[in-house]
């Protein structure tokens, strides 16, 4: 079974547009996910721009706080819910700090969408296994909501989400909604519990092996910290998933987002333009010990 991912062909850009000029967007809501992760709901100021905009699950954008700079994040909301857009940010540096200081009504710069997307067409009619760790659920939740909004054209859905501790669980409102949804098999786990945690405790890879989804007519989609991805890929292999049945999305330092500034390459592959979504077969072919 082949799951093919496509390349960004730059067709989101209108003729004559300057690709580096961001749209000015308004923050509509700020959600404090964990002590260092926030989710922002934002929207176009201009209704015409809003009407023209479209994206696909898995794509990313460049977000900026004017005067501080730009940073790269995926669009974490679903294209099936275009009332507003969402992105989530872990506070790790200068730009992310400035983003964390933003409040409802503040403005940000936004340019995109860039990169390729999850192969929606080729996962139709299949069982789907989503495996997310920490903030790595952000790109997956875009696809998950996309899939749930068209639930009939997919088979069984398993979602496994894990974080270091209960306090590190992001998107609790999603986890709750999926837990209640009888069309989804939802599993949540933490590496270490606390006094009030009554749920599952355990690292994602062993929990995944315990759940043991069948690879038969199934596609697994995973995203999380590099170490988690590494062991999750091994667990999926143990369960009998072939490399073509596993999809992940990568993160590298980016600036331009459009394949020119030169930093996000792994060998000749530019994560911003050729990715960020790759099958495990593709990743295994990367000629690089840099990954």
């Amino acid at each position: 079974m082949m799951v093919a991912v496509e390349k960004d062909k730059g067709d989101s850009l209108m003729e004559g547009d300057n690709v580096y000029i961001p749209h000015v967007m308004k923050i509509e809501k700020v959600i404090e996910e964990t002590q260092n992760i926030k989710t922002f709901h934002f929207n176009f100021k201009d209704e015409t721009q809003k009407a023209q905009f479209s994206f696909k699950s898995g794509q990313f954008a460049e977000y900026s706080v004017f005067g501080v700079g730009e940073a790269t994040f995926c669009i974490s909301s679903s294209p099936t819910r275009m009332d507003h857009l969402e992105f989530s940010v872990m506070r790790v540096g200068k730009v992310t700090q400035a983003i964390h200081e933003l409040q409802e009504g503040d403005e940000i710069g936004f340019r995109g969408p860039y990169g390729n997307w999850f192969p929606l067409d080729s996962i139709q009619g299949k069982n789907l296994v989503f495996v997310g760790g920490g903030i790595g659920l952000a790109p997956l939740r875009s696809l998950i909501w996309n899939v749930l909004d068209n639930r009939d054209i997919y088979k069984d859905i398993v979602i496994l989400y894990g974080a270091r501790s209960p306090a590190d669980l992001s998107f609790k409102y999603d986890l709750e909604a999926w837990d209640k949804d009888d069309r989804v098999n939802m599993y949540t786990t933490v590496d270490r519990g606390d006094e009030s945690w009554t749920g599952r405790v355990g690292l994602i890879p062993p929990v995944l092996e315990e759940i043991g989804p069948s690879p038969e007519n199934t596609v697994a989609i995973t995203c999380g910290p590099p170490i988690m991805i590494k062991f999750t890929l091994q667990s999926l292999e143990k369960l009998g998933f072939t490399h073509d049945q596993i999809i992940t999305t990568l993160e590298m330092r980016m600036k331009c987002g459009i394949g020119k500034c030169g930093r996000c390459n792994i060998g000749n592959i530019y994560v911003c333009k050729d990715g960020p979504v790759f099958t495990y077969s593709q990743i295994r072919n990367f000629l690089s010990d840099e990954f």
């Binding site: 580096y20 900026s64 004017f66 005067g67 501080v68 700079g69 600036k255 020119k260 500034c261 030169g262």
Partner: peptide, 22 residues
């Protein structure tokens, strides 16, 4: 060599986005 960086220069309520060789 064409690699570059993008940064903001800022003074109070106005500024510029600047591309520079990296």
């Amino acid at each position: 060599c064409h690699c570059f960086d993008i940064n903001d220069e800022n003074r109070k309520k106005e500024g510029k986005r600047v591309r520079s060789w990296d």
